[in-house]
Amino acid sequence: MSVSSLTTRPSWAKLPRRQMPVLATLALLLVMYGIGVSQYQAFSNVQVIFNIFIDNGFLLVIAVGMTFVILTGGIDLSVGSVAAMTAMVSAWLLQSGLPALLVLVIALLIGPLLGFLMGCAIHFFDIQPFIVTLAGMFFARGMCTFISNASIPITDGFWTTMSQYRIGDPRGNFVSVSVIVAFVVVLVAAYVLAYTRLGRNVYAIGGNPQSALLMGLPLGRTRIAVYTISGLCAAIGGILLSFYTLSGAPLIAVGMELDVIAAVVIGGTVLTGGSGYVFGTVLGVLVLGVIQTLITFDGSLNSWWTKIVIGGLLFAFILLQRLIGIRYK
């Protein structure tokens, strides 16, 4: 008998199936952008797209970290609070006169450290990620107000430069430093996921943790690593947030974890793990950004429509994932 008869599906059906969620997101994005351009003249301005990146750079970075966690089948509720805490700590340390570089290093260490501890609790004590990162979220948010009840402004030269520096073309279109940082993070993450053993182990564990273990993959190390990476991304996001707002505020980014999770899911990453791309997450963040921009342009629609539309999209994409049966388990 011929071997090809053993395959269950013709090969042409295979490829789009896996990429379908991402393609759906891409299509959605193009449709929404098309609507924007056809309805509002100003929408076709390139700067509109750049602004979406500028306004959502920190979200993108945090969503990249969340992509790692969700790919293993976990979840990290702490990211919004960790970002806020990072911004808060930076503002506080700068206020107390520490040099900018040192502040940057310290601020960037706190997030990964918390992520590492959470990963350890999840792995060694077998407590659900949901609960552990919930505690992490409480802790980080608590630290924010512990540092200060009020917003701390940042006046440091490095920070203000970073905040105001524009990288543009001669026609006046520009992006901020945050956008560049976000793109670097995206590229590094995409490389790690596609070309390193760590990245491949992330996918393997999300696909089937028992198999991964029997194949001799380092389950614990990888799990702890993804929460550490998520913490690092949240910290970078927090720094970008402080560039963006030039302050550390105790109540900033409340509920951001939901936007981040929504962006990752809309970007085609399956919440049960094992399937998804950083590129999809970029699209997911863009979808959220375009929705916000459209609603701003419209003027008659109110901001709460954003949430309703995001909820609707979440439903549509989860249903799509269910229908095409990406849940391998």
Binding site: R200, Y203, A204, G207, N208, Q210, A212, G274, Y328
Partner: peptide, 11 residues
């Protein structure tokens, strides 16, 4: 090689 195939289905 075990009875339940121990592979990662998504890879």
């Amino acid at each position: 090689v075990y009875q339940e195939v121990n592979l990662c289905p998504n890879l």
